[in-house]
Design a binder for these strands. Structure first.
Length: 897
DNA sequence: TCCTCCCGCCAAGCA
DNA sequence: TGCTTGGCGGGAGGA
């Protein structure tokens, strides 16, 4: 039939052509539906022209074949314009995407109607079982397949000039799925900024343009959040749980944290979970994450999870949802990890390799290449930031409550450390001099404090002298270039964390901050022993400096762990240090001290709760202060919400570290200087302030790099830190106060290479000090490690309460001070890229599947009661970025499904 | 039996 | 107030 009719009359022609009656209806309905179309004003979703799966193509584009006519693929060659069918195809093809979309929708609608009819008929004529068998299997309805269909609709790399909009109604109708399912997909895609929400029912498709940047940012955040350590701790806890079948620990956790569960709806969103899930892969080496561990970490397990299996199951379900979408994106692939305890489902990262964080500058430099931002008026960096995390700011803060349990676990570990026998340690020449952290820390004190207090309060300097804790041989500060860009190491901590009061000292020259731990007996303003206070996280805002300093300390403490993340030319000075005014204030520390003093360590959580009320006001102010500048009123509003939410949801955690709270509220950089010049500071010793603590629950402020603060953040990142982030991290701990292992290390662990990270000590860890100190001394003696001076010993003993403040004990011969070498060349410092280090020191390179891989496993040779970290490993090869982890390795079988 | 994850209820949030 | 969004968990299919 040689009919070449224009579109305007095609309907008439179709009317007389029974073979296209469906098309007639379609066009007619197009007009009819014009008023009922929920997205009529929305640019219809363009069809994906390439990389479309056959399945979806087949389903979505019957290609004008009337439903009544079974498709005959080769009946009419598409290139032949001289047949009615091909002509129609050509005409339809020439039509706009909207027309195509409507056509397909109509066809699908008709198909749907037919399906319903068929269903009805089947139900009528078939028995129940038969009907069930006639239904599509679950796999055919899986979210992964649905996601494939969804993705097939849009190009992976859409043209920036042509925005692709997504109408949920349209999608749900075309894909024959419940709206709920589309949300699952969209949420995950949104977390990767493959889509972003514009309005109700409306999303915009970005494709994979932003994926590299997004992944890089996620990796960065994951590193900064020490996901590697979290994974390790969870694994360790899992292992120890085998020896804790009675669940005593869980009961403790439940009783301790049950009332402080994080229940923020937004913090449980699939978006946040997805981001965290991706982070895990990006920071892990090999990039295999078991579902169980991922669930515990990423989904944000709350305190009662162990007791509430159903809750854990729920979160596993969500992980499956996410994993299905990520699998459809070909970012991950399901595998199975077979370890000693059985076969566990896991996922392996198959997405693009994410550049290390040293590419941050590049990232920013190429930020202008980011896909079109939501706002066209913002700067390129902001564009990129928005492109990375365009969603609402409050949604970009990830609540991380999973560590609540980890904190408890670590607390338990600490107890074990206290009672664990010291293991002989092979100390290399380079590390030897740095191993006695406590002596070293003390030794560093004069230099550090001298730098930091130089030109400041003379009183403080005098107090340093009074302390007489350190030898004159100050440990030279490591080269700034050794600092990892994004290192997360925790600095050395006071010898006795249990009784010292940390204040932050900035280091104007190096741009680092140090924590000064005040001995209560010497602090005139402190008269009460306040163990709880000692465990409070340091102000995160000082992270900038802390990080640098921590790296330095780690250079001394740890061994031969190369840093691959930070270029030698990267500046180490922090903005925080540069911007720090030399002010004086004791409000923060004093308040902290007073608050902590008033709080029994045994009732820390209650203390925190009681403090919530008093902190609300100031916290709100502080959070607002922390709020980065936003680019729009909407962003402001969102950020306000973010802060508010953070305030509301983390205030219970804030109190755990009231000092941290105060510092955070008052903006740490200022506080640091305020504190450092505090009069009457009986400086016991100065140590690098621990940077990011391991909160049991914290927010991952992905937006900190996205909403107008990218420049600032990036600048800080160059210094190896983004204080904004860490400020956010400081939020919350529920019930247990995290304490970096560095504190332990300072006390005694150097010989054992305790990782400076992830060791969280509870207030009742005071008792650990003596034991640890003894161990340290013993170990130091055997290892010829430097020992603290008698002053230091007295100080320490006073700290730990073994002797009254005024009592002095003579220095033991073994405690004679040994000059501390400044050698640090061979001493590794923590890397900012935990995954790299983990891969280098803890795990083999990602193996080919299936094959055995080594998984970190926190097992000690001595059994569960032996502190794993204390299990000396002389080779020093098993080491995390945050320090050494002497972890026996376990073989894992990774198999793909 | 356990793993997966579909399905839909229902509550929070929003216009 | 109705609609959108999405947390959540029961329970069924599949291995």
């Amino acid at each position: 039939m040689d009919l070449y009719l224009p579109l305007t009359v095609i309907d008439k022609w179709i009317v007389v052509h029974p073979g296209f009656n469906i098309t007639i209806v379609l066009f007619i309905d197009m007009q009819e539906n014009e008023h009922s179309e929920p997205c009529k004003n929305v640019l219809k979703t363009p069809l994906k022209q390439a990389s479309t799966s056959q399945l979806v193509l087949t389903e979505r584009q019957p290609d004008c074949q009337p439903l009544t006519t079974p498709p005959k693929p080769k009946e009419t060659p598409p290139a032949d314009p001289w047949t009615p069918t091909s002509n129609l195809k050509m005409l339809i093809s020439a039509a706009s995407p909207e027309i195509r979309s409507r056509e397909q929708r109509r066809q699908l609608s008709d198909s749907s109607s037919e399906v319903l009819q068929t269903k009805h008929c089947l139900q009528e004529h078939l028995l129940g079982d038969e009907y069930e068998k006639s239904q599509p299997s679950r796999k055919e309805k899986s979210l992964g397949l649905l996601c494939h269909k969804f993705l097939a609709r849009y190009p992976d790399y859409p043209s920036p000039s042509q925005k692709s909009y997504i109408c949920l109604d349209e999608v749900t109708e075309e894909l024959h799925v419940e709206r709920r399912r589309i949300y699952d997909i969209v949420n995950v895609l949104e977390s990767l900024h493959m889509v972003s929400r514009l309005a109700r029912n409306r999303y915009v498709w970005h494709g994979r343009h932003n994926l590299p940047q997004t992944l890089q940012a996620l990796k960065k955040v994951g590193e900064e959040n020490k996901y590697i350590q979290q994974i390790q701790m969870i694994k360790r806890r899992e292992y120890e749980h085998e020896f804790d079948p009675d669940g005593e620990r869980n009961e403790e956790m439940a009783s301790s944290f049950g009332s402080t569960s994080v229940n923020g709806r937004k913090y449980k969103s699939l978006r946040v979970m997805s981001q965290k899930f991706v982070m895990l892969f990006l920071v892990s080496t090999p990039q295999i994450v078991s579902l169980e561990v991922a669930a515990k970490i990423l989904i944000g397990e709350d305190q009662l999870e162990d007791l509430d299996k159903s809750k854990f199951k729920t979160k596993i379900r969500r992980l499956y949802d996410i994993a299905n979408v990520l699998s459809s994106l070909k970012l991950i692939k399901k595998v199975h990890v077979t370890e000693e305890r059985g076969r566990k489902p896991a996922f392996k990262w198959t997405g693009p390799e994410v550049l290390p964080n040293t590419q941050d500058i590049k990232l920013e430099a190429t930020s202008t290449t980011c896909s079109p931002p939501i706002s066209e008026s913002i700067t390129s960096k902001e564009q990129c930031s928005k492109a990375l995390f365009p969603s609402k700011g409050k949604q970009n803060f990830t609540r991380h409550s999973s560590l609540i349990k980890l904190v408890k676990s670590i607390e338990n570990d600490r107890r074990k450390i206290q009672s664990a026998p010291t293991s002989p340690v092979k100390i290399s020449a380079s590390t030897y001099q740095s191993l006695p952290v406590f002596p070293n820390t003390i030794a560093q004190f004069p230099a550090i404090t001298k730098h930091q207090l130089e030109g400041q309060s003379k009183t403080a300097e005098e107090m340093q002298m009074k302390c007489a804790l350190s030898s004159p041989e100050a440990v030279p500060k490591p080269e700034p270039s050794q600092q990892p860009a994004l290192s997360q190491p925790l600095g050395a901590c006071p010898a006795s964390h249990s009784s010292v009061s940390p204040v932050i000292l900035p280091h104007p020259q190096s741009g680092v901050s140090y924590a000064i731990y005040l001995h209560p007996s010497q602090a005139h303003t402190v008269t009460t022993y306040s163990p709880g206070f000692m465990l409070q996280p340091l102000p995160c805002a000082s992270v900038t400096g802390m990080k640098s300093s921590n790296s330095k300390i780690l250079n001394i403490i740890t061994t031969e762990e190369g840093d691959t993340q930070r270029g030698p030319d990267e500046p180490t000075k922090s903005l925080a240090a540069e911007e720090r005014p030399e002010t004086k204030s004791e409000t923060s520390s004093q308040r902290c001290l007073k608050r902590s003093q008033a709080l029994p360590e045994s009732n820390l959580i209650k203390r925190r709760k009681s403090d919530e009320e008093s902190l609300d006001t100031s916290l709100g102010e502080s959070t607002k202060n922390e709020k980065p500048p936003s680019n729009s009123s909407q962003t402001n509003h969102e950020m306000d919400n973010v802060q508010e939410e953070r305030q509301n949801e983390t205030k219970t955690d804030q109190n755990i570290a009231s000092c941290c709270d105060q510092c955070t509220k008052e903006n740490i950089p200022e506080d640091e200087d305020k504190i450092k010049t505090k009069q009457d500071i009986p400086v016991a010793f100065a140590i690098p302030a621990p940077e990011t603590f391991f909160p049991s629950g914290y927010l991952i402020p992905l937006t900190h790099c996205t909403h107008g603060t990218k420049a600032e953040c990036s600048t800080k990142e160059k210094a190896g830190v983004c204080s904004v982030q860490h400020t956010a991290y400081s939020s919350p701990i529920t019930g247990v106060i995290p304490m970096p292992a560095s504190e332990l290390k300072t006390v005694n662990i150097p010989a054992f290479h305790i990782t400076p990270l992830n060791i969280m000590l509870s207030p009742n860890s005071i008792a650990a000090a003596p034991v640890l100190s003894n161990s340290c001394l013993s170990s130091s003696s055997t290892s010829s490690a430097p020992n603290p001076s008698s002053s230091a010993l007295n100080f320490m003993l006073q700290h730990i309460g073994l002797i009254p403040a005024g009592v002095q004990v003579p220095a033991s011969p073994v405690l004679q001070h040994v000059p501390v070498s400044s050698q640090s060349e061979n001493i590794s410092h923590s890397s900012g890229s935990t995954n790299v280090q983990e891969g280098k020191f803890l795990q083999p390179k990602e193996p080919q599947e299936p094959q055995a891989v080594t998984e970190n496993f926190f097992r000690t040779p001595g059994g569960p009661n032996t502190e794993p970290a204390l299990s000396a490993n002389s080779d020093g090869t098993q080491r995390t970025s945050q320090g050494t982890l002497y972890i026996p390795q376990r073989k894992l079988e990774v198999s793909e499904d």
